[in-house]
Computed example of a mutant assay.
Amino acid sequence: MNVVSTRPQKIHPHKFTLWLAIGSIIMMFAGLTSAYIVKGEQPGWSTVVVPKIFYYSTGVILISSLTMQMALKSFKERNMQQYRILLTVTATLGLAFLVMQILGFQQLFNSGVKLEGGAGAAQFLYIIFGLHGLHVLGGAIALLVMFLKAFSARVRNYNAIPVEVISTYWHFVDLLWVYLFVFFLVKS
């Protein structure tokens, strides 16, 4: 006689913490984009043209999400050589995204779009895209830690939880960027 357990599976504490953080981040960006909509209806509102480099950075971050998913799959299959390569590519694409964001902000600034003064989309763009960049930077640092562990001769842990957590976070910041980018394209 087989006994089937009906106990619900528990979520790993790191995954639970990640989902709480993601919920908080969603609420923060929902508040900021809602404020943008409300302020955009006021007199004197000025819009801003999003630099073309942000289009390219969108492609880069989407590709990095694909390479991260492939890295997770490779890790679970214990194909460590492919995992290391894909993790390296993901981290490189993440850093390329951040560099492109900085270049985009420089283009905005050089074209006269400043954070201070005025009333309009520019201030929100700097704040919202800048906060997103900080979250990507946090993800890039986590990727760097994973990268160092992947190439360390001392670490031989095949626990997939840390890789799953960073993968979920990385997909989240990718999707968040797509939302924010499309939001600015539609609302500007």
Rank of each mutant, 00 (worst) to 15 (best):
S152R: 02
S152C: 01
Y158Q: 15
I166S: 08
Y179E: 09
R154W: 13
S167E: 11
S167W: 12
Y169S: 13
V165D: 11
V155T: 07
A150L: 01
W170F: 00
V182P: 15
V163L: 11
E164L: 12
A150D: 02
A153M: 15
H171Y: 01
L180E: 06
F181D: 00
A150S: 14
I166Y: 03
N159G: 15
Y169G: 14
S167R: 05
A160K: 07
L180G: 04
V165A: 10
N159E: 13
Y169Q: 10
E164A: 08
S152Q: 12
I166T: 04
I161T: 09
S167P: 09
D174Y: 00
L175R: 08
I166E: 14
W177D: 03
W177S: 02
N157H: 09
V173H: 04
L180H: 10
A160Q: 11
R156T: 11
V178L: 13
S167V: 00
R154V: 14
T168P: 14
L175K: 11
H171K: 12
W177N: 01
L176K: 00
L176P: 11
Y169A: 09
L176C: 13
L180S: 06
E164G: 02
I166F: 02
S152P: 05
V182E: 01
L180I: 06
V178M: 12
S167G: 12
E164F: 02
R156S: 15
I166Q: 08
V163S: 03
V163P: 14
A153P: 11
Y169K: 01
L180W: 10
V155P: 06
T168D: 03
L175Y: 10
Y158K: 13
V165R: 00
W177G: 01
W170M: 04
N157Q: 11
V165H: 03
N159C: 07
V173C: 14
W170I: 00
D174F: 10
N159D: 14
L180M: 05
I161C: 09
V155Q: 11
N159R: 02
H171N: 03
T168C: 09
R156Q: 09
I166K: 00
V178I: 06
R156L: 12
V155F: 15
N159K: 07
V165N: 02
F151S: 01
Y179P: 04
I166W: 01
I161S: 09
S167L: 09
N157A: 10
N159T: 08
Y158P: 14
Y158C: 11
S167A: 12
E164T: 07
K149W: 06
E164S: 09
A153N: 13
P162W: 00
V173A: 08
R156H: 11
L175V: 09
S152W: 02
R154E: 11
R154S: 14
A153Q: 08
A153H: 14
F172I: 01
